[in-house]
Amino acid sequence: MSTETHVDIEQLRRRQPRFQGLESGHRACLGCGEALAARLVLESAGPNVMIANATGCLEVFSTAWPESAWRVPWVHSLFENAAAVAAGMEAALKHQGQSAKVLAFAGDGGTFDIGFQAVSGMLERGHNVLFVCFDNEAYMNTGIQRSGSTPHAAVTTTSPAGRERMGKRHLKKDIVSIIAAHHVPYAATATVAYPSDLRKKVRRAIDVDGPSFLHVHSPCPLGWGHDSEKSIAVSRLAVETGLFPIIELERGELTGAMPIRHPKPVTEYLKLQNRFRHLFADDPRAREELEHLQALADYNIEVYGLLGDGPDPLDTSGIDKVYRGGAKWA
């Protein structure tokens, strides 16, 4: 038996079962949740799409000229206008009678904060655009500054911990509720820890004739301070603790929630990440913040009915399922 192996990359590529819209070879950090999420989104979106990408890590690591990792038409204009550029592309395709779906990609900064107005306008006008927010909970491209999406008490370079502060003082903006309040046909949250759920939601969103929104929890090993190989585990724990509920909303109504039978304490999630390390100090303020974060998770579990009361309370792996109508009504 020969030990020599000859790998024909091209042939392997051709045999790939799924469409690769974002190729390997880009410059994302090892274990980058955003890179994984974008690849997964395009795998199920397929080749008949065009992307308007906001400034941010995803744009920068994928397109250092003259190289590009994108295999679908892709344009980057600015940080805050991905939704508007996408709207213009959609209007043009409509005028030309073309069928390609337009996607807008942005980080949490480009969605929650500086790009929010354009997102809201695009949704309100009903453009046939799928907006995907790759949420790594800070401005990573510029070196980990706090955003409207940074969780309460997390440390970033502009929300450091110190004698007077325990990290970010404000709450993470509830973006998906705000989006849902536009009564768009479809809005959902997802994470890289549950790829089949993410893919399903992309297909759903693509099939919508109108605005749709996907909010994808995308761990950033560099900014969150966790091991690169732990990205999936971290993202899974965000769900299992109730800190990042996986939900679907149609025309503003909650229609699906991923149940988490046995919620884990938030400390399981927090302790893996350096951005929360200060919360494990022997300090009453730290304990108070931990309680606060646990209360936020409990609140999510309560309002979205995440505990579920189905027949199989031992089935912890069942969290990769979405029950139509939400676990509350399952």
């Binding site: 065009m50 308007a52 344009v75 204009s77 600015l78 805050e80 206008n81 939704a83 508007a84 550029v85 996408a86 709207a87 213009g88 592309m89 959609e90 209007a91 043009a92 395709l93 409509k94 005028h95 030309q96 337009v102 107005q117 354009a118 809201s120 306008g121 309100e124 006008r125």
Partner: peptide, 27 residues
């Protein structure tokens, strides 16, 4: 016979026109 996009700001007006021209329509 054109797509009229009544946007929420001038920032988006220019961005929509830009996206449309990039996607192959006179804008």
């Amino acid at each position: 016979k054109l797509e009229l996009v009544s946007v929420e700001s001038e920032f988006s007006a220019a961005s929509v026109a830009m996206g449309a021209a990039a996607a192959g329509s006179r804008a």
